[in-house]
Structures are given as C-alpha cells and as structure tokens.
C-alpha cells in the first residue's frame, strides 16, 4: 500500500498496483522514495478521492479486454466525467501533475466535448476569459474561415 496526503492534510491508502498508473508516483516508488507518506501539495482531498476512484477502477485495465470488462470500464468512464466544470478542471490539473495519461485524455476529451459546439461568446463566459482582441483582429480571423462561424449547431448557451 502507498500513502498519499492531500493539501488539506488527509491521508489515503492506495494499492500499489493502482497508484503506479501515475508515472510520477511510479518513478518515486522505483527510486525508493515512497516508503512514507507522499505529500501532494497541489491536490485537495475532494479531487484526490476522485482520482483514486479512477485508479482503483482502472487497476486491471490491461486485462479488461481478456475478461470482457471493456464495456463496464467505458460506462464507468462516462459516469466519471459527469461532473461540474470546476471539478473537471481540478481533476485535469491533478492528472497532469500526477502524470496519469489515460485519465488526462479522458477528462480533456470531456472538456472538449462540452466546448465543441459552443459559440465564441459562450466559451469566453464558461471559462471566464477576457476578450483582448480588437474588432479588426476578430474580423480578420472570421474572414480566414467564415464557414467555421456559421451553422445551426453553434450553441450560444452557457452550461
């Protein structure tokens, strides 16, 4: 078992087979650096619980194809990313920090799915981005590919 500590001082025990999906922790274990508690100063306990839930479910991912559990994993993944924006970003940041490739891909793809049909205005609002382009610069970008700014699928709602 490997002990992880969140930035709000909560400790979690995780099976080594699960936690080595994190390249960062795997390297620490290989270097003999995981004998005591591993502090994770960038991750709060709420996010760490989500990450551990993912790691435990994906513990035998390599065997999933043999045992026919692929559909089960797919369903889990779909449910897993069903969370709010802020929570999703926290998991993305944690997956990036811990270097968990599959989790990173899953969450980034989910974020892109939420953004893909959105209007420019909606994206700015969803991600709280300030528009610093001038009107001329904006028009120039639109003129380069006007077809990308037209279409019934473009959704101006923020959710």
């Amino acid at each position: 078992m490997v002990k992880l500590k969140s930035n709000d001082d909560k400790e979690f025990e995780v099976e080594e087979a699960a936690v080595i999906q994190s390249e960062m922790i795997k390297n620490m274990i290989e270097d003999g650096c995981a004998t005591s508690v591993i502090p994770l100063p960038n991750i709060d306990s709420k996010t760490l619980i989500k990450v551990i839930e993912y790691l435990n479910k994906h513990i035998n991912m390599g065997k999933a194809a043999e045992t026919g559990e692929e559909d089960d994993l797919k369903e889990f993944d779909e449910q897993f990313v069903n969370m709010g924006w802020e929570e999703l970003f926290d998991v993305i940041m944690a997956a990036n920090y811990l270097n968990i490739h599959e989790l990173m891909e899953l969450c980034c793809q989910s974020a892109a799915d939420r953004l893909k049909n959105k209007s420019v205005r909606a994206v700015r609002e969803m991600l709280k981005i300030t528009n610093d382009l001038t009107e001329e610069e904006e028009q120039e970008i639109i003129n380069d590919a006007p077809w990308a700014f037209e279409g019934p699928e473009i959704d101006d709602t923020v959710n």
Binding site: C108, L115, K116, V120, L133, E138, I141, A148, G151
Partner: peptide
C-alpha cells in the same frame, strides 16, 4: 486537440 476543425478555427476568436 480534441476539437473538430470547425470549432478549432472558431475558437481563435476567443482571445489573443
């Protein structure tokens, strides 16, 4: 990188 081309190009307009 997961976005389809249409959104990818549209989002150039989000910010600098």
């Amino acid at each position: 990188k997961w976005l389809p081309l249409r959104s990818f190009l549209r989002f150039k307009c989000v910010s600098k």
